[in-house]
Write a protein that binds this DNA or RNA. Structure first.
Lengths: 211, 211
DNA sequence: TAGATTGTTAATCGATTAACAATC
DNA sequence: TAGATTGTTAATCGATTAACAATC
């Protein structure tokens, strides 16, 4: 078992996929699975699957494979999904609301505790029981409430300011949907979701059909 | 200059970043830039920048560097952004609406030509001048209108059916926001945006602070 | 011309795959 | 015990970085 800091990003990005596959298997009451069977299911090689899992410890058993339920739980713990994350959403337009809905209905463990905006038309409305507050009070809110994750759903032009304010408020991570690269201090985890980059990649592949 | 099909995915994912940086430079009326300066700006090594760009041709000039405006245009053409893409959005809830707004206001070249949903409360409403139609008529719509990109903003359970219908309707690419891996035929480009995977990766990094 | 900087080859690094002894 | 399958080491592959001759 390696040091946690040594796990490569490539491996970390595959963990959710393993977990999703295991969840499906649990639904089908499958009790155990071999790396070969899992490979057929999700497309990674059996060798890669065994390598990946062994970064975190020997979860399998020779001659048997992996216990589906057990591995699911283990991967969840590795991913930090045994804890709760309190989140604020900054920018409560369509995208902010979509994320609030998603988190509320589908992701126990990720709890929206506050929503903010500068638009007077949005301030005061309620999204899944969370009232949208004036962005002006975000700093105060973060002082009074421990918040783990700040979600930026604002325009490009305000994204960096929002990020700074979130960092001052001691969030542990930022999930950024604004179409720019923001800067945060080293101790804050940052996950950029560049939807426009993703759409551009799709346009590239459409324009350059394979073979 | 390599065959277009030989460009690695890693390179393609970096192209949007180059383009964004060049756009910023154009705003600041910068005329030329060296790989070293660009490196300082976006964090890739100068060597990688030169390697990346040379996959597509020699855009630079020894002793001078790269012409900002020219390179911006070239990269746009490589990325296929000199053409228009007609898109339909299937699932017109918050996320579908957020994407419709985004495309309408920020991305000339990506045009929403139709929105669809099964929810009677959404059918008939207008988003940026596009009326949400009954999902029942999607097949017909795709027969009568050439559509390049299908965007899936539905629930997990209907995502694969929607993908099948879009493929039957001869879309060239699918942008999938449903939290599952859908299957499409080889000739259709597929871009999955797994927001939950992204949030999970963030949770991982929060749970495992570096050193 | 001299200096700067590319284009490109070679070296390095890291990630993936193959192989197989260990062992359930 | 025999068969199956892991854990783990070694080999391969691909991507990144370094180096430098070409050349503007």
């Amino acid at each position: 078992m390696k040091e946690s800091g040594k796990i490569s990003n490539a491996v970390i990005r595959r963990l959710p996929r393993y977990r999703r596959a295991l969840k499906e298997l649990m639904k089908k009451d499958v009790e155990r699975i071999s790396s070969n069977e899992l490979s057929a299911l999700i497309g990674y090689t059996a060798s890669q699957i065994r390598q990946d899992l062994n970064n975190f410890g020997g979860f399998g058993q020779q001659g048997y494979g992996y216990n589906v339920q057990g591995l699911y739980t283990q991967i969840g713990m590795i991913m930090g999904l045994d804890k709760d994350y309190k989140m604020v959403i900054v920018g409560s337009g369509n995208l902010g609301q979509a994320i609030a809905n998603y988190a509320t209905y589908y992701r126990a463990g990720f709890v929206v505790v506050g929503m903010f905006d500068v638009n007077p038309k949005l301030i005061g409305i309620s999204i899944n029981g969370i009232e949208v507050q004036d962005y002006e009070v975000l700093g105060e809110f973060l002082k009074e409430n421990k918040v783990d994750i700040g979600i930026i759903c604002t325009t490009k032009s305000s994204a960096q300011n929002v990020a700074d304010k979130l960092c001052q408020g001691n969030v542990k991570g930022i999930w950024n949907f604004a179409p720019m690269d923001i800067e945060v201090s080293e101790d804050v985890a940052l996950e950029n979701v560049h939807l426009s980059d993703s759409l551009n990649a799709l346009a590239y592949y459409i324009s350059h059909p394979m073979q």
